[in-house]
């Protein structure tokens, strides 16, 4: 996978190098700008995903506890709203009710990608074999001990799958952050479209795609690495 992505980037580089660029194209298609846009894009993705983990995993854990059986459906409904609204609308909404820039964009991404992590956390915990939990409780593990040492480790593969989904959603949706001045690789694409410079559009689009595939690949590696042995 990394070799394929490197080949794509090399091909892009050679193709751009063979073209003569005008001033608009040079303003966008240069290493400094590309690097800063890419790093912004990665920041948007990583910061929003980390926030999603901090919010959705504890919420998922709480909602699967027996005392939360009643409040679980309404809470999921709230998380559902984020996904139900189209992503571009969500970004616009945040810019109107709050502000434009990096943080509103991050929060919009969080709202958009929290559900898969929440849902997978809950599913991951619910699919733990109840007899395993019973035997752990029967041996005198506390409820918290069972959660930390049995339930969460056994739910890790499913939770990680949710995190991977959220990452992929975020890296893709972050391309829209530019509409509310959030930066990222979307800025290159928008310029290309707005100024009718196909080369710029293609560079932005290819870079976005390569980044998304790279992040998905890394998330896959992390999934394999973090999955508990013995499962």
């Amino acid at each position: 996978m990394p070799a394929l992505l490197a080949a794509v980037l090399l091909a892009l580089y050679l193709w751009v190098g063979s073209q003569t660029l005008d001033s608009i194209e040079r303003a966008r298609v240069n290493l400094d700008f590309i690097l800063s846009a890419t790093s912004r894009h990665v920041q948007l993705t990583v910061v929003s995903t980390v926030l999603v983990l901090l919010i959705a995993i504890p919420t998922g854990v709480l909602l699967t506890r027996s005392f939360a059986r009643r409040i679980s459906p309404p809470t999921i409904a709230v998380f559902n709203i984020g996904v139900a609204i189209p992503s571009i609308g969500l970004l616009a909404l945040f810019s109107v009710v709050w502000d434009i820039g990096f943080w509103p964009a991050v929060l919009a991404l969080v709202a958009y990608s929290a559900l898969p992590v929440l849902r997978n956390t809950m599913v991951g915990l619910q699919q733990v074999d109840p007899t395993v939990i019973e035997s752990a409780r029967g041996m005198g593990m506390s409820k918290l001990g069972v959660l930390a040492r049995i339930e969460l480790p056994l739910a890790v593969p499913v939770i990680l799958a949710g995190v991977r989904t959220a990452l992929v959603i975020n890296v893709g949706t972050a391309a829209l952050a530019t509409f509310i001045n959030g930066g990222g690789l979307g800025e290159i694409i928008i310029t290309g479209i707005g100024q009718n410079r196909q080369l710029v559009t293609v560079v932005g689009a290819v870079l976005t795609a390569v980044l998304a595939l790279l992040i998905d690949y890394l998330a896959g590696l992390a999934e394999d690495f973090l999955r508990p042995r013995g499962l």
Binding site: S135, R137, M139, G140, P153, R229, G230
Partner: peptide
Amino acid sequence: PDGLRRRIGYVIQQIGLFPHMT
């Protein structure tokens, strides 16, 4: 109850070994 259960061995039909532990 947790302390009590540590003093009492417990085996169930499905055994319930922890699959992620050796």
